[in-house]
């Protein structure tokens, strides 16, 4: 005759500790440098794929790129570095003050599209220079696609670590993906007007940040 299987009693803490201790194995420590390296690798791969698909804009090396190109891509790089630093630091559990460099970097970058829009709004009738390149909105799409690779690397870093602020990690992933993805694609784009680079190439940043805020937390929850 079969005897009913007794319902197992809830495991006591002592039993849990004994079992975990028995199963312990050596681990390789998670290092911030690995996180930086992985996100840098994702960005480089995104840039290489962009170059393969769209060809590198040689005007960058021929001195044809406008100041807007350098300034805006420089701001994107600063934001990319700041958000990557915040993201990697946040991938390891810690308490205490968090730097707000990504927020300030994003605020500085936000000045650019505002300036571009003001330029468009105050341009003389018939002045096409102010709106030059605005219709090439697909650049924003390509930059977002490049950002996917950066986001993938960032998510891998976060999953390997133990982020304790999922919402913040989501924002930072989006900011890093948007800014570094935009640079990765941007080296192939010959349009360097303020309107184009300042609006179309900056647009992926807020879009990716909002997507990151909502998509990333469920992927990194532990």
């Amino acid at each position: 005759m079969n005897t009913p299987t007794p319902t197992p009693a809830p495991r006591s803490r002592a039993e849990l500790i004994a079992s975990l201790s028995e199963e312990i194995t050596p681990v390789r420590r998670v290092k911030p440098s690995q996180g930086y390296a992985l996100i840098a690798l994702g960005s480089v791969v995104a840039a290489v794929i962009s170059v393969v698909l769209h060809r590198l804009w040689m005007g960058i090396f021929a001195g044809e790129a406008s100041s807007y190109f350098w300034i805006i891509n420089g701001l994107l790089l600063v934001l990319g570095i700041a958000s990557t630093a915040g993201l990697v630091a946040g991938s390891l559990p810690r308490v205490g003050a968090r730097g707000n460099a990504p927020a300030w970097s994003a605020a500085m970058l936000a000045v650019v599209p505002v300036a571009a829009l003001l330029g468009i709004a105050t341009a003389a009738p018939g002045d096409t220079h102010a709106t030059s390149g605005l219709m090439f909105w697909k650049c924003a799409l390509y930059a977002l696609c490049a950002g996917l690779l950066v986001a993938g690397s960032a998510i891998a870093v976060l999953r390997r670590g133990a982020p304790v602020s999922l919402e913040r990690s989501g924002w930072l992933t989006g900011l890093a993906a948007g800014s570094l993805g935009s640079i990765a694609y941007g080296i192939t784009c010959p349009l360097d007007s303020l309107a184009h680079v300042g609006i179309i190439h900056v647009l992926p940043v807020p879009i990716a940040a909002v997507i990151g805020r909502f998509v990333v937390p469920p992927l990194i929850r532990w």
């Binding site: 849990l16 975990l20 810690r94 670590g161 133990a162």
Partner: peptide
């Protein structure tokens, strides 16, 4: 305790232990 055990590789010996543990607990 299970989370602590699973994520033990994320502690860096050059940093303080208790803030790390407190972050996991929180």
């Amino acid at each position: 305790l299970i989370a602590f055990y699973t994520k033990r590789a994320t502690w860096d010996p050059s940093r303080a232990f208790l803030p790390w543990l407190a972050a996991i607990a929180r």
